[in-house]
Design a protein around this nucleic acid. Structure first.
Length: 424
RNA sequence: GCCGCGAUAGUUUAGUGGUAGAAUUGGGGACUGUGGAUCCCCUGGCCCGGGUUCGAUUCCCGGUCGCGGCCCCA
């Protein structure tokens, strides 16, 4: 092989592409059925935008470069930032809510492993301009609906609330910046470092007890919510629980199976309210196939602050999860192969192919195969019908249509050929 | 960034310190207008660089790529 693919990238062959396009279609149709409309942003953005709200670790994993004019650019590592940039640039004055969806490739410079590639695809939605619970609930429900439509069985939805955590921290006098650090430690599960930081920030024992108590709450809705209420009795964070509960009440109308985990923090500083993650457990280390929640980003990016929430599917992982679970026989094969019995009839075969294409996908044998070989080819490729173009039939204004499955043959008038697709 | 395993026709593989077979795929023929069988022919390969050696596809080192794990995961 002279040239090989760049590390961590993939070529997609026709069969896999057919499966990917099918899944993509289900996602698009679901998003659109809720009124989301597709947008597209550039593959690269200014490095400042991408790096703005990101820590060192994230910048380290960017594909970044300078263009010929010395501008610092980066390939997008995700789509929430570009989409919000687009919103601020173009859509701030449009009627709310604004519903956007995307299906795009992203790039991260990481060591490839199972379910992790340097070029990967994300499909997601952003709901901008409303923070009513029915909106947030709907966003979560859409993610679940997609997976259900795809027939994925083995997945778990986990819901948490960064809003509650932030409220507790704010009540304890922790500034925004420190909140980020704390949430990061929570996300990583670094309990020891977390306790040290809390000590350093002089969080009172009572507040610490409440925070750690909340973090440990996970499981069934009723239990988690009532325990959280008890912990937060008489505190401002109680109102966050109430909002959380009303989101869940709306969610319950559409999704029954989920668990709560108030220890979910998600990695990024801009998450502010309800957050959720979906896992396909059989994928192992890279099991998270979807992540999202409510966040505040418009203000940080220089726009007018507005509530937003959304999610992104790790498209490639959704594919892996589906393929691990079931056979996906989705392929778009040619319907008809046109074969002339002799080279002198090639011209007729070309014309006949064009006629057939008005109603069915059709390929002309381009290898000048003999009839027997052509039938073998149709058979091995799973092409269900062969149209044989021969002198004898042409003299009668006909061609022979062969059903490859049954071996049945019949003569068809050229005049009927145009609508042949309806009969196959 | 780190660790383990690996790399031989398009694919799956055998094998060797003296440059390699097989199966399968692909093209053609036996069969000059009828497929899934059979037989025959053809095409096609030792990841890259360095070292050891008379000689390396084989042994050693490095790289690249793949699979998987750690870190990380927006």
């Amino acid at each position: 092989m002279q040239f090989s693919r760049p590390r961590g990238t993939r070529d997609f062959l026709p069969e896999e592409m057919a499966r990917r396009r099918y899944v993509e279609k289900v996602m698009r149709e679901t998003f659109e059925s809720y009124g989301y409309r597709e947008i597209q942003t550039p593959v690269f953005e200014s490095l400042e935008l991408i790096a703005a709200k990101s820590g060192e670790d994230i910048v380290k994993h960017l594909y970044s470069f300078k263009d010929k004019s010395g501008r610092s650019l980066a390939l997008r590592p995700e789509l929430t930032l570009p989409v919000m940039r687009l919103y601020i640039n173009e859509l701030q004055r449009k009627p709310k809510p604004i519903k956007l969806y995307y299906f795009e490739n992203c790039f991260r410079y990481e060591e490839p492993q199972a379910g992790r590639y340097r070029e990967f695809w994300q499909a997601g939605i952003e709901l901008i301009g409303t923070s009513y619970p029915e909106g947030e609930a709907e966003v979560i429900a859409i993610a679940v609906e997609v997976l259900e439509k795809l027939g994925l069985k083995d997945f778990e939805l986990h819901i948490g609330s960064i809003g509650i955590l932030r409220k507790i921290l704010r009540e304890s006098g922790v500034k925004e910046k420190e909140q980020g650090k704390i949430l990061h430690l929570i996300d990583k599960g670094e309990r020891e470092k977390l306790e040290n930081l809390l000590k350093k920030l002089k969080i009172s024992g009572e507040n610490k007890r409440i925070l750690l108590g909340i973090l440990n709450l996970s499981g069934e809705k009723k239990e988690v919510v009532s325990k959280a209420r008890e912990l937060l009795k008489g505190r401002a964070a109680l109102e966050e629980i109430e909002k959380f509960e009303s989101i869940l009440r709306f969610l319950d109308l559409k999704v029954q199976k989920y668990s709560l985990n108030l220890g979910i923090a998600r990695g990024l500083d801009y998450y502010s309210g309800t957050v959720f993650e979906i896992y396909a457990n059989r994928l192992g280390a890279q099991k998270q196939i979807c992540g999202g929640g409510a966040y505040s980003l418009a203000g940080m990016l220089g726009g007018e602050e507005t509530p937003t929430c959304g999610f992104a599917f790790g498209f490639d992982r959704v594919m892996l999860a589906l393929e691990a679970e079931k056979e996906m026989n989705i392929d778009s094969k040619t319907h008809v192969l046109v074969v002339p019995v002799s080279e002198s009839l090639l011209g007729d075969a070309v014309k006949i192919s064009s006629i057939i294409r008005k109603s069915a996908s059709c390929e002309l044998d381009l290898m000048r195969r003999k009839l027997g070989r052509a039938l073998a080819y149709a058979n091995s490729e799973g092409i269900p019908f062969v149209v044989i173009v021969g002198d004898e039939e042409l003299a009668k204004g006909c061609v022979t249509l062969r059903d490859m499955k049954t071996g049945e043959q019949k003569e068809i008038k050229l005049s009927e050929l145009e609508r042949i697709g309806e009969k196959l």
